[in-house]
Amino acid sequence: MRFTDRVQFYKSNDHYDPDNPDGKPIPVGEPVIANVTHLGVNRSMQLFGNLNTDRLVVRLIQPFVEDWEMLRINDSKTYYSLETGVHPLKINSYIVGETQNE
Rank of each mutant, 00 (worst) to 15 (best):
N42L: 04
S76H: 08
V65A: 09
M70N: 01
L56S: 05
R59M: 05
S93V: 01
V7Y: 00
T37E: 10
Q100P: 00
N42E: 06
V32L: 05
F64Q: 05
R43T: 15
Y79S: 15
G29D: 12
R43D: 12
L39Y: 04
L60W: 01
A34T: 07
R43K: 15
V7D: 01
E98N: 12
G85K: 09
D19T: 13
S12D: 12
R2H: 06
Y94E: 01
Q62G: 04
P18S: 08
L47Y: 12
I73R: 06
E83R: 14
V96L: 09
Y80I: 03
D54F: 02
L39V: 13
V65Y: 02
T4K: 10
D17A: 10
P27L: 05
S44T: 15
A34H: 03
N13M: 08
A34E: 04
T4G: 14
D19H: 12
R72V: 14
T53Q: 15
Q8N: 11
V7C: 03
E102K: 02
E98M: 13
Q62D: 13
L60H: 01
R55K: 13
F9I: 09
L82N: 14
Y16T: 01
S44R: 06
Q46C: 02
V65Q: 06
T99R: 10
E83P: 00
E102F: 03
R59C: 08
N42F: 01
L60M: 07
N92G: 00
Q62H: 13
L51A: 09
Q8M: 14
Q62A: 10
H87L: 04
M1Q: 06
Y79A: 15
I91K: 01
T99P: 00
I33N: 04
G85W: 03
G49T: 14
G49L: 11
D54H: 11
V86I: 13
G23A: 06
T84R: 14
D54T: 11
R43W: 00
H87M: 08
P88C: 06
K90P: 00
L39D: 12
Q62Y: 07
D14A: 12
V58W: 02
L71W: 01
S76D: 13
E30D: 13
Y16K: 02
D17K: 05
L47C: 03
I95G: 04
S12R: 07
N50W: 01
N92D: 15
T78R: 12
K77H: 06
N20C: 04
F48S: 05
S76M: 05
S81A: 11
N50Q: 08
W68Q: 05
N52A: 07
S81P: 00
V7E: 02
G97Q: 02
E66I: 01
Q46R: 05
P18T: 07
W68Y: 14
V58K: 02
W68F: 15
P25T: 07
G85R: 10
N20G: 06
N74V: 08
L82P: 03
R55F: 06
L89A: 14
W68K: 03
T78V: 15
K24S: 12
E98G: 00
I95P: 03
R2M: 08
D22C: 04
V57L: 05
D75M: 10
D67Q: 09
N74Y: 02
L47P: 02
H15V: 08
L47W: 07
R43C: 08
A34C: 09
T4M: 13
Y94H: 08
T84E: 12
D75E: 15
